[in-house]
């Protein structure tokens, strides 16, 4: 009996990925050079509040990497004005980070059919990294009957 072929359904949503790494030392250097101006320009008050503590710089570097990963996943045109605050990386009650978009970043995501962006952050040995996954809007199951039963 032949093994039936397995096909991904044609309506399977395409998840887009973006990633970035960022040296913690570079962020520390910016804080040393520009202090509050740098922090206020790049990070939202909530991001700064949620990063407080002894690992503050590592966590902020992770958030910067996440913002960059989101920029990549959104495939922004060079003319898109996306202030750093418009990509906010929040930590949920369960400790899992998630992204909240505003302004042109939110508009671009909507236009691209992106429903939400998940992120994963890590930092070790002076390097912070992040992966962002853009989750597309899932169409209702009723619109995909042609693939069922194949």
């Amino acid at each position: 009996m032949p093994t039936p072929a397995v096909h991904a359904p044609r309506h399977a949503p395409r998840v887009r990925l973006g990633c970035d790494v960022h040296p913690v030392a570079e962020l520390a250097e910016s804080v040393d050079l520009f202090g509050e101006r740098y922090l206020a320009r790049v990070f939202t008050p909530l991001e700064r509040e949620q990063c407080e503590g002894p690992a503050q710089l590592d966590r902020l570097a992770g958030r910067f990497a996440a913002k960059e990963a989101v920029v990549k996943v959104l495939e922004l045109p060079p003319t898109a004005a996306v202030p750093w605050h418009d990509i906010e990386v929040r930590t949920g009650r369960n400790g899992v980070p998630f992204v909240v978009l505003a302004g042109q970043a939110a508009q671009l995501a909507l236009a691209q059919g992106i429903e939400r962006i998940d992120v994963s952050l890590s930092h070790d040995a002076g390097i912070a990294m992040a992966v962002a996954a853009a989750m597309p809007v899932v169409e209702p199951a009723g619109g995909a009957t042609e693939d069922e039963g194949a």
Binding site: H22, E26, L27, S30, L33, F34, R37, Y38, R41, V42, F64, E68, V71, L76, P78, T79, A80, A81, V82, P83, W84, G103
Partner: peptide, 30 residues
């Protein structure tokens, strides 16, 4: 991109200006 943030802040100091949000594009610092 991160270096461009430092460049922007240093330019603001040097020229006594402030880059508004609408100029925060990759094209502005290209």
């Amino acid at each position: 991109s991160h270096a461009s943030v430092n460049v922007m802040l240093a330019l603001e100091d040097a020229f006594e200006v402030e880059f508004p949000d609408e100029l925060l594009t990759k094209q502005t610092f290209c």
